[in-house]
Design a protein around this nucleic acid. Structure first.
Length: 287
DNA sequence: CGCCAGGTTAGAG
DNA sequence: CTCTAACATGGC
C-alpha cells in the first residue's frame, strides 16, 4: 500500500451515483464483480486500519491465482502503483489547488481497468449531464452485461465487446441512446472484436501514439481519448482539455463570470506538465 | 421556456 | 483551416 492513499475519498467517488450498476457500496465497503482467468470473481474491499485494505472473496475459492488477479485488479482500480508525491509538490505551491490537495489528500484516480468500459462510458457521457449518463449506463449494463446472483443480490459485468459488436445500433435506441451514441458504441465494440483495438496494444504505446490510435475510431475525439487514457492506463499527463466540468471548476477558481477559454485553461495547467490528469481529478472534486 | 450538460462529427464557408 | 448544426434528454 502506498503512503499516500485515502480509501474513503475513493469510496466517496464510487458512491456518487445511486444508479451505478458496476459495483455496490455498503457503508465502508465496496463489492465488485470481475472476470478473471478462473471465472467470475465477486469480492469486497474495505479498510482494516488506516491505509490497509482488506479484501474478501465472496463467491470463489481463494486460490493463490484468484487472489493474485483480484489484487492486481485493485491496484489498477485505485491507481496504487503511481507515486503522486511529485504532483503534491507542484500543487502545494499553487494557490488554485493548494487547499484541494490538502482536503482530498490521498485521493487517487479511481479507474476503469476495462478499456471498452472506459471508452463507452466516455461516449455515453458526451454532452449530457452525469445523472442521465448513469441512467443510460445502467440500462446498457443491465440489458447486455452478464449477471451473477449472490445471496439474492445481482451483480453485473460491463457488456462484452464481442456481444455489443453484433448488435444493430437501433437496439440501443430504446435505452435512449442517441443515433450517434448507438453507432459509436457498436463501432467501438467492433474495433475490439476485430482485434484492431485492444488494451494490450495501447499499453505498449506512448500517450501520443495511443491517443492517435483511439482517435481514428468514430466517436472518439480528444476529450474521450484523454479521458480513457487517464482512467484505464493512468497516464498522469492525459488531459481532457475540453471537459465541461473542468471548465466550471476553473470558472469558480479563477472567479470568472463565464467559462474560461481553452487558452486560460492551458495557462493554469502549465505548472502541471506531466501531471495534468491529477490536476484535473482534483479540480473535478470542486463541482 | 431556455440553457447547459464530463463532445464529436459532417458539411459548409 | 475554422465555424456550425445536429444529436436526445434531464435538471435547474
Amino acid at each position: 500500500m502506498p503512503q499516500v492513499f485515502d480509501f474513503k475519498h475513493c469510496l466517496s467517488f464510487l458512491t456518487r451515483s445511486p444508479r451505478e450498476a458496476l459495483h455496490v457500496c455498503d457503508g465502508d465497503r465496496v463489492v465488485k464483480l470481475i472476470r478473471s482467468d478462473s471465472g467470475h470473481v465477486l469480492f469486497e474491499v474495505s479498510e482494516k486500519n488506516k491505509g490497509a485494505l482488506h479484501v474478501q472473496l465472496l463467491n470463489s475459492t481463494p486460490t493463490a491465482k484468484v487472489r493474485a488477479s483480484v489484487e492486481s485488479y485493485i491496484r489498477e482500480w485505485f491507481d496504487l502503483d503511481t507515486d503522486i508525491t511529485p504532483f503534491y509538490a507542484l500543487a502545494s505551491r499553487d494557490r488554485h489547488l493548494k487547499e484541494l490537495v490538502k482536503k482530498y489528500h490521498g485521493y487517487r484516480i479511481v479507474g476503469h481497468p476495462d478499456l471498452f468500459e472506459s471508452l463507452v462510458w466516455a461516449v455515453i457521457g458526451q454532452q449530457i449531464n452525469l445523472g442521465f449518463a448513469y441512467t443510460l449506463k445502467q440500462r446498457f449494463v443491465e440489458q447486455f452485461g452478464e449477471r451473477l446472483h449472490v445471496n439474492g443480490a445481482a451483480y453485473y459485468l460491463f457488456p462484452d465487446p464481442v456481444v455489443v459488436a453484433e448488435l444493430d445500433p437501433e437496439f440501443l435506441y430504446p435505452l435512449q441512446f442517441s443515433r450517434q451514441k448507438s453507432k459509436y458504441t457498436v463501432g467501438i465494440a467492433q474495433a475490439f472484436a476485430s482485434g484492431e483495438l485492444s488494451k494490450e496494444k495501447l499499453k505498449a504505446m506512448s500517450l501520443q501514439e495511443a491517443k492517435e490510435m483511439l482517435m481514428k475510431i468514430k466517436g472518439i475525439g480528444n476529450w474521450t481519448a484523454n479521458y480513457a487514457l487517464m482512467k484505464t492506463f493512468h497516464f498522469p499527463d492525459a488531459f481532457p482539455l475540453e471537459d465541461a466540468g473542468l471548465h466550471n471548476a476553473l470558472k469558480q477558481k479563477l472567479k470568472l463570470d463565464r467559462k474560461p477559454t481553452l487558452a486560460e485553461v492551458m495557462k493554469v495547467f502549465r505548472k502541471y506538465k506531466g501531471w495534468e490528469a491529477y490536476a484535473t481529478l482534483y479540480l473535478w472534486k470542486t463541482i
